[in-house]
Amino acid sequence: MRNNKSMSLMLQFCYRRIALLTTLLLIGTFYSFAQKKYVSANHYSFSYPLTWKVIDPQVLNATVKSNELQNANYEVGFKLSNDTSQKIHYPYFLIQHQVANIDFEKLSFTATANLVKKKFENEVLSYRSSEVDTSKVKLVKFDSVKIDSLNKAVSQTLHIRVSGTREIIYIKHAFIGRFGITVLNYYLDNDKGRTLIPELVKINSSFVYDKGYEPITLIKPPKKHGLINLLIAVAIGTVVFFAIRYFSKGKA
């Protein structure tokens, strides 16, 4: 009798453990697939996991002013949801949107992408010049700029050393729109941050410009073959009509 009671208690314990593990697994699965959507007033949007959240604009502005980041205007920033501090800690990503000062509609994607590529290369040079305080930030290595013709984007990965010891992965991913460029700047810890790269790839994959603001090369031109087919049909119909009349007269 005592053995049966012990067995019953053990089974109850096992069932509870299984239920708890199942619940945790379901919650983890929900958070891995559930996403939010960021919609910008600059006519673009993208989805991001619930494990990320928007950085308080005041915190972002204060960080930029303290020269901890490059001198730039950022529209918005994101950090991990479990980061409750009033400072920006790695990993995080910041977004810049720049309206084109030239007419993108008159340029091919290749020409526009090469302009962005040149801009990225010049930024790399700035790390090696007096523009950047090397006691705070030092360029360790960098990859060549990649142009993605399919997704109309330009990207580059840099490895920088911050405050003398900490190495950071800095990924720049620029989407070329019809009237401007949107750059997603990812800052990841060299050790733990690598595990987040698949999430960042999904964020990039979800990025879209609003209709009318997408890259000019992605806008489908009006179909001209419809008119051509109509003219061909009219011509064939005319030939058949006169052929019928001709043979009809011949029989008469």
Rank of each mutant, 00 (worst) to 15 (best):
114 N>T: 07
172 K>T: 06
105 E>N: 14
113 A>M: 03
150 L>W: 00
85 S>N: 03
44 Y>C: 04
68 E>D: 08
172 K>M: 09
182 T>L: 00
58 Q>N: 13
70 Q>Y: 10
109 F>T: 03
123 E>R: 07
138 K>D: 06
167 E>Q: 03
57 P>G: 03
180 G>W: 00
40 S>K: 02
119 K>E: 14
77 G>R: 04
77 G>N: 03
95 I>G: 05
78 F>Y: 06
168 I>L: 06
71 N>K: 14
121 E>C: 10
76 V>A: 07
145 V>A: 11
74 Y>N: 09
90 Y>D: 06
165 T>I: 10
113 A>Y: 03
107 L>D: 01
55 I>Y: 06
56 D>K: 12
115 L>P: 09
146 K>V: 11
140 V>P: 06
85 S>K: 02
141 K>R: 12
145 V>G: 11
129 S>V: 01
130 S>Y: 07
85 S>W: 03
79 K>M: 11
98 Q>P: 11
128 R>F: 07
126 S>C: 08
53 K>P: 11
66 S>E: 08
167 E>P: 04
86 Q>T: 13
63 T>L: 11
55 I>P: 12
175 F>M: 01
109 F>G: 03
49 P>R: 02
136 K>W: 00
93 F>Y: 14
44 Y>T: 04
44 Y>M: 02
60 L>A: 02
70 Q>F: 09
115 L>N: 14
89 H>M: 07
61 N>T: 09
175 F>W: 00
171 I>C: 06
140 V>I: 15
171 I>V: 10
61 N>Q: 15
159 H>I: 13
155 S>E: 01
72 A>H: 12
45 S>P: 04
112 T>M: 12
145 V>Q: 02
144 S>C: 05
49 P>Q: 04
58 Q>R: 14
60 L>R: 02
90 Y>F: 15
60 L>P: 06
92 Y>Q: 09
139 L>C: 08
117 K>H: 12
156 Q>D: 05
119 K>R: 12
110 T>N: 15
131 E>L: 15
52 W>F: 13
40 S>D: 08
46 F>Q: 12
63 T>V: 11
75 E>I: 08
107 L>A: 13
49 P>K: 04
134 T>K: 12
113 A>C: 07
126 S>V: 06
158 L>A: 04
113 A>P: 08
49 P>D: 01
172 K>C: 06
173 H>T: 03
43 H>Q: 13
166 R>M: 05
54 V>Q: 11
43 H>A: 10
117 K>Y: 09
82 N>W: 07
137 V>K: 15
128 R>S: 09
42 N>R: 14
107 L>M: 15
128 R>E: 10
46 F>E: 03
142 F>I: 10
181 I>S: 01
123 E>H: 07
116 V>Q: 05
48 Y>C: 04
174 A>F: 00
50 L>C: 07
71 N>S: 14
43 H>Y: 06
102 I>R: 08
85 S>A: 13
67 N>A: 15
159 H>G: 05
56 D>R: 10
130 S>N: 15
90 Y>S: 13
